[in-house]
């Protein structure tokens, strides 16, 4: 199962990618997060001390997190600001910590953590009208660190006005494998 979380602020890449995957008859769900209300993680410790494994605050993350418990591939389609995920995407990603594996593992001589939910592959599609090379590197590094710390597989795609068609085609091709 593939779940696409798309912050559609100033971009339509999420819908286009959904279209491409549908053409390939791939089982997936697109969740438009643009208008969802997800509160910050307040680092209150409630998910450890009050309701183990569950956030004590009720918001729209309650509809997303159960889906991530059943999805194998998480695709995040996000506008990129200063080499980072968008505010809305990051609010959800921050909350994902509550369904993250709390254990530590050792890989290549370093400590790593585990998966969020049952997600074994993270694909990030960063969207900008135009990229600076340095920002490309920054976003790529960030996603690679995410993949590394969760000890999973993944890819990062950098879409802009000039390459969006080809970029999403390659992403859809990769996801269909």
């Amino acid at each position: 199962m593939i779940t696409i979380l798309s912050d559609n602020t100033r971009q339509e890449a999420g819908e286009k990618l959904e279209q491409k995957l549908r053409e390939r008859k791939i089982e997936m769900e697109l969740i438009d997060i643009t208008d969802l209300h997800v509160d910050p993680c307040y680092s209150c410790g409630g998910c450890t001390n009050k309701t183990y494994g569950q956030c004590i605050h009720r918001d729209d993350a309650d509809t997303i997190l159960p889906k991530l418990m059943r999805t194998d591939v998480l695709v995040m389609v996000t506008p990129v600001k200063w080499g980072s995920y968008s505010f809305k995407t990051k609010r959800i990603f921050d909350k994902c910590a509550v369904i993250g594996d709390r254990h530590y593992y050792s890989k290549n001589g370093e400590l790593v953590k585990g998966k969020i939910g049952r997600v074994h592959t993270l694909v990030a599609v960063g969207v900008k009208e135009e990229w600076l090379d340095e920002e490309k590197r920054a976003f790529k590094n960030l996603v690679e660190e995410n993949i590394r710390i969760m000890n999973i597989r993944g890819r990062v795609y950098l879409a802009d006005d000039s390459n969006i068609g080809d970029c999403l085609e390659t992403a859809a091709e990769g996801l269909s494998k």
Binding site: S84, K88, L142, I149
Partner: peptide, 15 residues
Amino acid sequence: CYINTYPADTVYLLE
């Protein structure tokens, strides 16, 4: 650091 960078609300502040 929340998942390899500052929390979401830092992005909000900068925006």
